[in-house]
Simulated assay, not measured.
Amino acid sequence: MSKEIIYGINCVSEAIKNSNREIYRVIACKENSERISTILKNAAAAKIRIDFSERKILDKICQSPHHQGIAAEVSHLKTYEIFEALALEKEAKKAMWLAADSITDPANLGSMIRSAVCLGFTALVLPKNRTAGINSTVAKVSSGALEKIKIIEVSNLNSSILELKEKGFWIYGADAKGEEISQAQVAFPLLMIIGSEGDGMRLKTKEHCDKIISVNQKSDFDSLNASIAAAILMYQISLKNK
């Protein structure tokens, strides 16, 4: 099985709790904090190998200095088919899923995942092409949320949208010219699609949407990046899911 490195306190802590991850080893700086000590105790209790390292060496292992003194060598995150993710929903009729269309910035994707988990979205539909893949940057920026969401990798987003429609999902796409979300009526279960900052959703994807929604901005200054817009839309949608 292929391996990858993830890093950061929350990221490693949540990975250890995730039964869908295999943790091959945890790597920590010799001088560490109380929070890292707690993670190491949990790793030891789970019989996970623990290695200690100099900070400069850990920088090289992570290919980043932003590891907070801890990293882990892990298996790739489990991905799901649509039917598998649906079967795991506690309340399928109220399901809220997110889709990323042409989101190529891993930091944006990680931030979206963090907001999605906080706001009750339970799955991410992620095209295999033209979108950032799941990597260590996505994991770090998500601050552990990546371990709590079902990742559905698809070859064709539009085909997956049609499949979800057949299963009763309503499809909502984000676009600056859409209906303002606080005023819009939405139905569940739903899939909300976020497109790239530059081009938005692809035209064919937009055509499959049941409704286009937007964030009401108070000025004509277009200052919201994709992850912030996604967070606002997901928050407003979560308020309507009663």
Rank of each mutant, 00 (worst) to 15 (best):
L124Q: 04
I151L: 09
V154C: 11
C118L: 12
A123V: 11
E81H: 14
W170P: 00
N158R: 13
S111C: 10
L77R: 14
E179Y: 03
G168D: 04
L98Q: 06
I161Y: 07
P106Y: 02
D105G: 07
G173F: 08
K78N: 04
A92V: 15
G178N: 10
A132Y: 03
V154S: 07
Q68F: 09
A145C: 01
Q63P: 00
L88T: 10
G133K: 14
I134D: 10
F169V: 10
K177Q: 12
L98N: 03
N108Y: 09
V74A: 02
I113Q: 03
E91Y: 12
G173K: 04
Q183T: 10
C62F: 12
V125C: 12
K93I: 12
L146T: 00
G178P: 11
T104A: 13
E166C: 07
Y172M: 05
H67I: 13
Q68R: 13
N156K: 08
S142P: 00
N156F: 07
K177C: 09
A123G: 12
A95V: 13
E153Y: 01
F169M: 08
E180P: 00
D59T: 09
E73S: 06
L164Y: 07
L109K: 08
N156S: 13
A95N: 11
V74W: 04
E91Q: 15
E166S: 06
A107D: 10
I171Q: 02
K140R: 15
C118G: 14
K165I: 10
A71E: 05
Q63V: 13
I61C: 08
A87D: 14
